Amino acid sequence: MKGMTLLQELFDSICKINCLNEEIESLYHQASVKLGVSDSVSFVLYMTYINKGKCLLYDIYKSSGISKQTINSAIRKLENEDIIYLEKYNGKSKIVCLTEKGKEYANQTAKKLYEAEFSAFKDWDEKEMEIYLKLMKKHRNSFKKQIEKL
């Protein structure tokens, strides 16, 4: 019976972790709503903002978890509004770049989100941040291996 208790504790922990992850994702969605942009537009702006106005399109795809089609729609919307433009990079690759108008827009949107994140973490000491990052990476790597086995 003791083994069942450990399994139940693991199950309960996984449920708590998944719920917390979903709550955090929901907070990002709430931020997008408050900033007046879609989640995909918010992510494109955020990635270009934190990368000093330029970001490889591949990195946006890879980091977002959002479908390529949805990211491409967000990019077309931002291009049509003169917020971003695409530059060719090493053959087929492209870089998403903020225009001057886009830099102002990113300051009104992505910068606010970044500052909220920064404020949320500013009270963490170096050791807490190190532990959090180490555990997140460990979980990601282990989970990735399990997903590859599916």
Rank of each mutant, 00 (worst) to 15 (best):
M1E: 11
K2Q: 06
K2T: 03
K2M: 04
G3C: 08
G3P: 07
T5F: 09
Q8P: 00
Q8N: 10
E9T: 07
F11D: 00
D12V: 04
S13L: 12
I14L: 14
C15G: 04
N18Y: 00
C19Q: 09
L20V: 05
L20I: 03
N21C: 06
E23F: 08
I24Y: 08
Y28A: 11
H29T: 07
A31F: 10
V33S: 11
K34H: 12
S38E: 10
S38Y: 01
S38N: 13
D39A: 06
D39P: 07
S42L: 15
F43V: 07
V44P: 08
L45I: 10
L45T: 04
T48D: 03
T48F: 09
Y49M: 07
I50W: 01
I50A: 00
K54S: 15
C55A: 08
L57Q: 09
Y61A: 03
K62L: 11
K62V: 05
S64C: 11
G65S: 05
I66Q: 10
Q69V: 13
T70V: 09
T70S: 14
I71F: 03
I71V: 13
N72I: 02
S73Q: 08
S73C: 10
A74I: 01
I75T: 02
K77M: 05
K77D: 07
L78H: 05
L78V: 07
N80G: 04
Y85K: 09
L86G: 08
E87H: 00
K88G: 14
N90F: 12
G91E: 11
K92V: 02
S93H: 14
I95S: 03
L98C: 00
T99K: 02
T99G: 08
E100W: 03
G102K: 00
Y105R: 10
N107R: 15
A110G: 13
A110K: 06
K111T: 05
K112D: 11
K112F: 04
K112V: 05
L113E: 10
Y114V: 10
A116V: 01
A116L: 14
F118L: 15
S119V: 06
A120C: 12
A120D: 08
A120Y: 09
F121I: 08
K122A: 06
D123Q: 06
W124F: 15
W124E: 11
D125H: 15
D125S: 11
D125P: 10
E126L: 12
K127R: 13
M129C: 13
E130R: 09
E130C: 14
I131G: 06
Y132E: 11
L133M: 06
M136N: 15
K138W: 08
N141Y: 01
S142W: 05
S142R: 15
K144H: 03
K145G: 00
Q146H: 13
I147A: 03
E148A: 14
E148H: 15
K149N: 14
